[in-house]
């Protein structure tokens, strides 16, 4: 087979992937989430490596199909999407832009890096209410509307809100 040049550059592929939404948090792209680990181009074939946020995240299948679909619209000879487990996904990979989008959407973004030892000691940092910016908040439950979120409430504006928990 003759080596032919890819129709798109790697950064163009990344730009296309920015259009793929997380099906459960549609304000975030899969790139914002840090779910895309690698894009490899060779001979006009593209291989995208993705990693699950949580082991049982039901969105992964949809994400995989959406990536395949959008890349199939390009003229690649082959599109491959593979799942990798290591290194395990962490909220540290979420882009700053992604965190800001979450806040505007009404979900409190992860407050600290997982390298922070406070988490190991079981100490939750203060989570800021995404609506009124108050720090006077409390956790209602470690588990929320999706695997990646906890349920919190604001004691000032009294609104409940989702918090994207750190893993």
């Amino acid at each position: 087979m003759v080596n032919k040049e890819s129709i798109l550059t790697e950064s163009e592929v990344w730009d296309i992937l920015r259009e793929v939404e997380d099906p459960e948090i549609p304000v975030l792209s899969v790139v914002d989430m840090g779910v895309i680990r690698e894009v490899v181009l060779s001979d006009n074939r593209v291989k995208v490596s993705i990693t699950p946020t949580y082991s049982g995240c039901p969105a992964m299948k949809t994400i995989e199909e959406d990536i395949r679909e959008i890349l199939n619209e390009q003229s690649f000879d082959a599109v491959e999407v593979v799942t990798v487990l290591a290194p395990a996904w962490t909220t540290d990979w979420m882009s700053e832009e992604g965190k800001e989008k979450l806040r505007v959407y009404g979900i409190a973004p992860p407050e600290y890096s997982t390298a922070d030892k406070a988490k190991l000691m079981g100490i939750e940092k203060t989570v800021t209410c995404p609506r009124c910016k108050s720090k006077n908040t409390e956790m209602v439950s470690q588990f929320g509307s999706t695997a990646c979120k906890a349920l919190w409430k604001c004691k000032d504006c009294l609104e409940p809100f989702d918090y994207f928990k750190c893993i």
């Binding site: 699950p52 949580y54 082991s55 049982g56 995240c57 039901p58 487990l85 209602v140 439950s141 470690q142 588990f143 929320g144 509307s145 695997a147 349920l151």
Partner: peptide
């Protein structure tokens, strides 16, 4: 309601781990 959600979230994690 919170516990309903917690137990099923844990179930989901376990089934995901089991799949792998």
């Amino acid at each position: 309601l919170e516990e309903d959600i917690a137990l099923t979230n844990i179930a989901l994690d376990l089934i995901g781990q089991s799949t792998q």
